[in-house]
């Protein structure tokens, strides 16, 4: 089966900024694929090329088997795109926006209503309200409805959950799971590492490059060094102390503990614990842990300059 999305060594430069550097990935049909990275990583540029809104400087991309440059007209009728910035008509009501987008694509809300029913049900009480007057969470739901109303085969979502609270984020991802179950391919970007585990596969992006692609479980195998969770009072002093340890590679706050990475191939948590006690951290505990997505992303970020220095 040919992939729903395929890119080969995509490059895009804006002035002196290399927004995308040889980005290659492929997304299977009905896959929920996440682009994970911070602002400026190149996520939006990649999505805009795939949405046929930008032409790459070099490299090639296909969507549903069609070239994004030569086949842009057909691609546009078969995909849904939700840009990062709210781009519906603020002066039109909820209902008017939805009808407008359906009409543009030659569809009607009625014929595709079953696809959006779950999401639209929450908007129904406000259907006469102007889009500009909706709360952030509601705007996002409306934008998703408008991107879906012509029943696209593939959805491109640019940071749909940025700035949204934890409850609405959870609800949004549940909606994406339901859409995937209906066979829709979804490529979604996010700066939130915890959302990566909700994807079938993810690509880590940093400074225009794709650092790694794998399943959320598989990608953490790239983290190979010893990782310990260290707990103790006065976290700030504890972090500083850990960074001064001769074998330390990094020490970062992680929720209620500090994640310490050792620079050696193997390391013993009890050795670190006794060193901490010798430094006056009497209550410090050290425990070996398995790396998570965020640990892995951070490790890859920090390793990247060396590995790619001559690339």
């Amino acid at each position: 089966m040919s992939p729903a999305i395929q890119t080969e060594r995509l490059c895009k430069q804006f002035g002196t900024v290399e927004a995308l550097r040889e980005a290659s990935l492929s997304v299977a049909e009905a896959e929920l694929f996440g682009l994970i990275g911070a602002d400026g990583a190149g996520k939006t540029t990649l999505l805009r090329i795939l949405a046929t809104l930008l032409v790459p400087d070099s490299g090639k991309a296909t969507m549903l088997g069609l070239d994004t440059v030569a086949g842009y007209r057909e691609i546009r009728t078969r995909i849904g795109y939700m840009p990062g910035r709210f781009s519906l008509y603020q002066d039109l009501s909820v209902e008017e926006n939805l009808n407008f987008f359906a009409t543009v694509f030659g569809a009607t809300v009625e014929e595709n209503y079953n696809l959006i029913r779950d999401i639209y049900a929450q908007l129904e009480p406000f259907r006469k309200r102007r889009a500009g007057q909706l709360s952030g969470g509601m705007k996002q739901k409306l934008a998703l409805c408008c991107a879906l109303v012509h029943r696209p085969e593939l959805l491109l979502l640019d940071e749909p959950t940025t700035g949204v609270d934890a409850v609405s984020r959870q609800e949004f991802w549940q909606m994406l799971q339901r859409l995937k179950a209906q066979g829709i391919t979804i490529l979604v970007s996010t700066p939130y590492m915890d959302e990566a585990v909700l994807c079938d596969r993810v690509a880590f992006m940093q400074e225009g490059r794709i650092l790694a692609i794998d399943t959320p479980q598989g990608i953490t195998k790239l983290f190979t060094r010893p990782l310990f969770a260290v707990r103790g009072s006065d976290r700030h002093k504890l972090i500083a102390e850990l960074r001064s340890y001769e074998h330390a590679r990094s020490a970062y706050a992680f929720g209620n503990s500090v994640h310490y990475t050792d620079a050696r191939e193997t390391a013993d948590p009890s050795e670190l614990a006794s060193w901490l006690r010798s430094r006056g951290f009497d209550d410090a505990t050290v425990e070996r842990i398995a790396p998570g997505i965020e640990d892995t992303f951070m490790a890859l970020m920090e390793e990247k300059p060396k590995e790619l220095a001559d690339g």
């Binding site: 911070a38 700066p191 706050a253």
Partner: peptide, 16 residues
């Protein structure tokens, strides 16, 4: 929301 959108390493340096 001082750390919105930044990478996880930068976010932690900000907390430092």
């Amino acid at each position: 929301e001082p750390t919105g959108g930044v990478d996880p390493v930068t976010r932690r340096r900000f907390w430092d």
